[in-house]
């Protein structure tokens, strides 16, 4: 499962599992901070959005009246960091009346079976 990277370091498959909505708690924001820092380590990174985690990606977030930072635009920057494997659980989207068009970045909408397969192949799973 581990490959040798060019620099002689290890490359592992990292999966970030996001299951919490933004703003109500800090987990979503601090999870994104790990992803952005982690991108510099040139690992094989995937992000999974399950349950309320899909709310992190919805369009139209406006936090002005809350007085907190709207961090959702940062998801658009992930591609610049070569983080482009974003998997969203289909059933979670559907249960929340959402579809891929409601999300602010291109994602791969996957079935439960496919998501389970993706999870099973990981070396490191960071859950938030």
């Amino acid at each position: 499962m581990e490959e040798e990277a060019g620099a002689g370091g290890k490359v592992k498959k990292f999966l970030y599992v996001n299951r919490k909505a933004p703003y109500g708690t800090i987990y979503a924001l601090e999870s994104l901070e790990v992803v952005l820092i982690g991108a510099a380590f040139e690992q094989d990174v995937s992000l999974a959005f399950i349950g309320d985690g899909v709310y992190q990606l919805t369009k139209g977030q406006d936090t002005k009246a809350l007085g907190v930072k709207n961090f959702s635009p940062a998801f658009r920057a992930l591609d610049d960091y070569d983080v482009n494997k974003l998997y969203v659980d289909e059933a979670s989207l559907r249960a929340r009346g959402l579809s891929a068009e409601d999300l602010l970045v291109p994602v791969e909408v996957v079935s439960t079976e496919r998501m389970a397969e993706i999870m099973e192949g990981q070396d490191v799973v960071l859950s938030f």
């Binding site: 990292f14 820092i37 380590f41 690992q43 490191v124």
Partner: peptide
């Protein structure tokens, strides 16, 4: 220290166990 230490732990350790 920085968040890089977490990623490094994930790379260096054989298993990473999360408690939360």
């Amino acid at each position: 220290s920085g968040l890089g230490q977490l990623i490094e732990a994930g790379i260096e350790a054989d298993r990473l166990v999360v408690f939360g």
